[in-house]
Design a protein around this nucleic acid. Structure first.
Lengths: 213, 213
DNA sequence: CACATAAGTGAACGCAGAGTAGCTTAGCCT
DNA sequence: AGGCTAAGCTACTCTGCGTTCACTTATGTG
C-alpha cells in the first residue's frame, strides 16, 4: 500500500503545496499592481508555467483573489489570538498581535498584506472578506479599549487608534523589500514599538528596537 | 471689450475648472477601485457626462492618472513648505506639514491621496512622479533628523518613522468618509497628534484633539 | 512495456473598456 | 435671424486579458 514509509509526497499534498505557492505569488502581484492590474500571466511567469496551467488549481482570477484575502485574514486572526493570549494588558496584547501579524505578512514565507479594492470582489466573497475584516478591526478596537481601561493606554479614540496602527502596518508592503538591509523581524519590532508608543500611557524614554540603533 | 465688468467666467477658466473637476472625481475613483479597476465611465458618470466628453479635457486615461498624481504631490509639497515655515522645531514642522497634507487630501475640495501602483504609470510620467515622491520623502526624513538633532524627537530611525507616518496618513483614504461624524479637520488633528506622539521626546500625558474627547 | 491518468502547453474565443469618428445641440457674435 | 465654434452624444473599432479547448508530455501502475 504505502511505499517508502510514506516519505514520498502524496498527490494531495503536492496539489495543496502548489496551490499555496500560487496564492503566495498572486498576493505579491495583486499587491504591487492592484487586483485589476495584475494579470494571471504575471503570476504564472513567476512560477515558471503558463497561465493555462493555473486553471488546474484555481477556478478563476476572482477565486484566486478571494483565496489570497482569506489567507491574509487567517494570519490576522491567528496573530490577534496570540496577542490576546500572551499580552499582560491591552497595550501589550496589541504589540504582540500586530508585530506577529506584520512579521508573518512580510516574512519570507508569508503572504503580503492585501489592500481590498472596492468591487474587486463581489457577492458572497466580498461579504465574507469584509465580515472577517470587520471582525478583526473590532477585536483590535476592543484591545485598545481594554488598554485604556487597564491604564496601559492613554484615553483616546479607539477606532482612530486602530486605523492609525493598521495604516502604519499595511503601508509596509509599499516600501519593504526583503532584499534590503532590514529583516522582517527588525521592521516588525521597530515599527510597532514606534507606532504604539503614541498610545502608551507611559511611553519609554528611548526606543529599543535594533533598527533604531 | 469686456462686458459685465468681467464677472462672467472666461472660456479658459471654465475649461480649467472642468479639468479640475475631472481630476478630482477621477482621483476618488482611482483610489477606490485601483488605477486599472477604475473606468472612465465611472468618472464620467459622477460628472453627469459620457466618457467621450472627457476626451475634450484629457488626452488619455494615463494622462489623467498622471495629472492626479501631480496634483497630489503638489499638495504634499505645499504642506511641507508650510510646516517648514511655521514649525519651531523638527517635530512641530512635521505635525504642521502632515496635518495640512491630510486636511487638504480628504477635505471637501481636495484630492484624495493616491497610492501609486507599480506599472500604472510608465516612462517619463512614472519617473517624474517617483522623483517628486522621493523628494517629498527625503524632506520628511530630514525633518525627522532635524527633530532628533534639536531634541524634540527621540533618537530613532528617521526613514522608518517617515514611513510609519506616511502609512498612517495614506491609509485614511481607505476608511474616511466625509459623510461620517468626523470632519477632515478633526481627523487630521487627532491622527497626527497620536502618530507623532510616538516620536516625541516628551510626549504629552493627554491627547487634546477633539476626537479623543 | 502498455496503458491510464495527471500535468502542462499553445492557440483559440469573447468581452470589457480605452479610444475614435461623425453627428447633434448649445452658446455666442454680428 | 443666421452662422460659427465649442461641447457633448451615440455608435462604432480595437486591444488586452480571462477563460476554454484540443493536444502533448510526464508519472505512476499492472
Amino acid at each position: 500500500m504505502s511505499r517508502w514509509a510514506n516519505v514520498l509526497p502524496d498527490r494531495e499534498e503536492v496539489l495543496e503545496a502548489k496551490r499555496k505557492a500560487i496564492i503566495r505569488e498572486a498576493a505579491k502581484v495583486f499587491n504591487r499592481r492592484g487586483s485589476h492590474g495584475a494579470t494571471l500571466e504575471d503570476v504564472s511567469e513567476r512560477l515558471g508555467v503558463t497561465k493555462a496551467a493555473l486553471y488546474r488549481y484555481v477556478q478563476s482570477k476572482q477565486d484566486l483573489l478571494f483565496a489570497c484575502h482569506e489567507e491574509a485574514m487567517e494570519i490576522a486572526r491567528e496573530s490577534i489570538d496570540k496577542g490576546e493570549a500572551e499580552g499582560r494588558n491591552g497595550l501589550e496584547k496589541i504589540q504582540i498581535g500586530m508585530s506577529g501579524y506584520l512579521r508573518e505578512m512580510i516574512g519570507a514565507m508569508g503572504v503580503p498584506v492585501l489592500i481590498l479594492e472596492e468591487n474587486a470582489l463581489t457577492g458572497r466573497q466580498a461579504e465574507r472578506i469584509i465580515a472577517l475584516r470587520d471582525e478583526f478591526e473590532a477585536r483590535m478596537r476592543r484591545l485598545v479599549e481594554e488598554g485604556i481601561a487597564d491604564g496601559s493606554i492613554v484615553p483616546l479614540n479607539p477606532k482612530l487608534a486602530m486605523f492609525m496602527l493598521l495604516g502604519a502596518v499595511h503601508w509596509v508592503t509599499k516600501w519593504y523589500s526583503p532584499d534590503g538591509p532590514w529583516t522582517a523581524d527588525d521592521v516588525a519590532d521597530a515599527l510597532i514599538e514606534m507606532a504604539t508608543r503614541g498610545l502608551a500611557s507611559r511611553p519609554g524614554a528611548k526606543l529599543r528596537a535594533r533598527i533604531h540603533k
